[in-house]
């Protein structure tokens, strides 16, 4: 199966990820795999299957649950209902920092009953979280005010319609692989929300050189999961190695992600991209127009995922509190904002 034993206590784990090796998920998978192989003293071998080559990204949750995949890294956005509680990170205007999300989720996965129950009902054990960074609008033309959104067509994710409709813009779905071409040919005017790393990985700056930090903050997260029964079948030594690997990973993430974002920023700037921040009053105006609606949307998804409204609101409150706590303690600086404020 996904984690197959050879009788001598050695284990091979198939790790499936939806992105290429250079995206944050790919980097996280590589670090995690190499660390576990080292921590287990060579008893565990981890084979990484990237870009959805083994199972498509949208299928990875199911494949991990049933054992085709030993460890899957799954974005919450692929499963708005099944991962409705995890989608608490999509709560807008909380934090710009992926690293804060990760710290908060590590704690919530243990302390919050709703998030805990979600993973338990799926029969999976969350091991670690991977973030993408804060939301930016990636566009052909510069955006300096909300008025610049009017009439634009965006490549949409789940919440795009709700966010851009009040600004007179529209969203339509385009496969990630086709975003570049669709912008180039004028089928869409840009993509929103989009993180810096994804934009750079698809070279979107060649056709849409303007990245604008819009202020909603982080909007998605991915979780590394293993089926609970697969995990239970591992020898104690392997479980211990996994624990140590997770600790090493969480210590590694803040600096590694900062370095990653700095590299992406260099690449974008060298290619002539313009990174800027939407002015504060504009961001505030947008928040007033959409925050309540976005939260309604999250609640509706939670309801579909059979989470009581009060439970989800309690989870949101916990998330906000923890985010606030880690905002003040982390040394990590949001790379997207840093990229915008660096002298052009």
């Amino acid at each position: 199966g996904g984690g197959s034993g050879a009788g001598d206590g050695s284990v091979t784990i198939k790790l499936a990820i939806p992105t290429g090796p250079d995206a944050p998920i790919g980097q996280a998978a590589k670090f995690w795999a190499e660390t576990l192989e080292k921590e287990s003293g060579g008893r565990v071998r981890v084979d990484i299957f990237d870009s959805g080559s083994l199972v498509p990204g949208t299928e990875t949750l199911k494949a991990t649950r049933d054992g085709r995949v030993g460890l899957g890294i799954v974005p919450n956005a692929y499963h708005p209902e099944e991962l409705a509680a995890l989608s608490v990170v999509a709560t807008p205007y909380v934090t710009q920092k992926t690293v804060v999300d990760i710290a908060a989720l590590n704690e919530l996965a243990v302390s919050n009953k709703t998030l805990k129950a979600e993973f338990e009902e799926l029969g999976v054990k969350p091991l670690f979280f991977v973030g993408n960074g804060g939301a930016a609008a990636v566009t052909k033309a510069p955006i300096t005010s909300l008025a610049d959104f009017k009439g634009k067509r965006f490549r949409a994710l789940a919440t795009t319609d709700t966010m851009v409709k009040p600004l007179g813009a529209t969203g339509s779905f385009v496969e990630f692989a086709d975003v570049y071409e669709s912008i180039q040919r004028g089928v869409i005017d840009g993509a929103f929300p989009m993180d810096m790393g994804s934009a750079a990985s698809a070279s979107l700056n060649e056709v849409a050189p303007y990245l604008t930090v819009t202020g909603q903050g982080t909007y998605t997260v991915s979780v590394g999961i293993v089926a609970q029964r697969t995990y239970d079948s591992y020898p104690a030594a392997v479980k211990d190695a996994i624990e140590r690997t997770n600790q090493a990973y969480n210590a590694w993430v803040p600096t590694a992600f900062a370095e990653y974002e700095a590299k992406v920023c260099d690449k974008l700037r060298a290619a002539g991209a313009h990174v800027s921040v939407l002015p504060g009053d504009q961001s505030k105006e947008w928040q007033d127009k959409t925050e309540a609606k976005l939260n309604e949307l999250l609640l509706a998804a939670a309801a579909k995922g059979r989470i009581a409204a009060d439970d989800f609101k309690a989870l949101q409150d916990d998330y906000r509190k923890l985010a606030l706590k880690y905002e003040s303690t982390t040394k990590y600086e949001d790379g997207l904002t840093a990229c915008a404020t660096r002298a052009n």
Binding site: T58, A77, Y78, H79, P80, E81, E82, A156, L157, A158, T159, T160, D161, T162, F173, L297, K304, G305, R306
Partner: peptide, 11 residues
Amino acid sequence: HAGESRASQSG
């Protein structure tokens, strides 16, 4: 039983 739907706003 899981109420599986498309991963977008359309549901």
